[in-house]
């Protein structure tokens, strides 16, 4: 009886397996296909082995894009996570103001990516944009279309504006789930504000922050629309992140092999970082 029962269950899983296959595996196989072959059109393909991979990994262009990508992700994580937790801590815990804060926080998350890019593009224009004009009026030379530093600052600001809210909402939910008794006990133990954060809030936030980190890492590592709309990867190549470079290689230069192998390397890197991070943070759990 046990056996029939088990086999039936396999059939139940089949539709899911099919959907997953259609969704993820098949398109991925196309990419894998391209990454090991070359073509001169007419649907004629040559097997190239690891050539494209070698070329990508050895090219300086890829190294530079990769470096920019990691720098970008690192900077926005370093800003958004602490800032998000900080704002969540400062938000009122109940009452009308709590709801008002939550709505305000959720607003940026509702705006589509390309709109955010366009908004900041106009907002930061040195001659007519409110931000750009104000900064220049203060005597600081700022122009994101011609200065790499200005472009980077604008790009980071835009991401922080758009996505810190996500961290805030997650952290806020995490904080709200802490029982009042913990805070009362801490007051009685004469714990400092820092101790309360370090020994009560942070441990309880660990799980939500892990999720926030992973979401923000993946999102920022694969970000395309916003910086593309804002700077188009320029000035020069100074804001050409991995995804922008990938599109340039694939659709701009029609280097399908290079683009495909880049995609795979890109995908594997994202997976690796997420896995590393997850394993490291969850290691302490099993004792």
């Amino acid at each position: 009886m046990n056996k029939t029962w088990n086999n039936k269950a396999w059939f139940m899983v089949l539709p899911v397996l099919l959907i997953v296959a259609m969704n993820a595996v098949v398109p991925l196989m196309t990419v894998v296909n391209y990454s090991v072959q070359d073509t001169f059109g007419n649907n004629v393909f040559f097997f190239e082995g690891a050539r494209w991979f070698r070329e990508v990994l050895e090219s300086e262009r890829f190294h530079n894009a990769l470096f920019r990508q990691f720098s970008y992700t690192f900077i926005i994580l370093a800003i958004e996570i602490p800032l998000g937790v900080g704002i969540a801590l400062a938000m009122p815990r109940s009452g009308v103001w709590a709801s008002v804060c939550l709505v305000l926080m959720a607003l940026p998350l509702l705006i589509p990516w390309n709109v955010v890019g366009a908004m900041w593009n106009i907002f930061a224009l040195p001659d007519i944009g409110l931000l750009g004009y104000t900064i220049n009026a203060m005597g600081i030379d700022y122009n994101f279309t011609s200065q790499p530093i200005s472009a980077w600052i604008t790009m980071v600001l835009m991401d922080v504006w758009h996505w810190t809210s996500l961290v805030v909402l997650l952290a806020y939910a995490g904080l709200r789930s802490i029982d009042d008794a913990y805070y009362q006990a801490a007051r009685i133990d004469a714990a400092s504000r820092w101790s309360v954060f370090r020994y009560i809030q942070l441990p309880k936030l660990k799980h939500v922050l892990t999720i926030a980190f992973l979401l923000r890492f993946m999102d920022s590592f694969m970000i395309y629309t916003e910086p593309f709309v804002l700077t188009g990867g320029g000035p020069g190549n100074s804001t050409t992140l991995l995804s922008i470079d990938l599109v340039k290689a694939g659709l701009g230069e029609f280097n399908l092999g290079i683009a495909a192998s880049m995609s795979i390397i890109y995908f594997l890197m994202t997976l690796l970082v997420c896995w590393l991070f997850y394993t490291l943070t969850m290691q302490g759990e099993k004792e």
Partner: peptide
């Protein structure tokens, strides 16, 4: 405040760090 009263309190559900 509680921390200035020099008292200790044990709660219904164990509160530990």
């Amino acid at each position: 405040q509680p921390q200035d009263r020099n008292i200790a309190q044990v709660f219904q559900f164990p509160v530990i760090y």
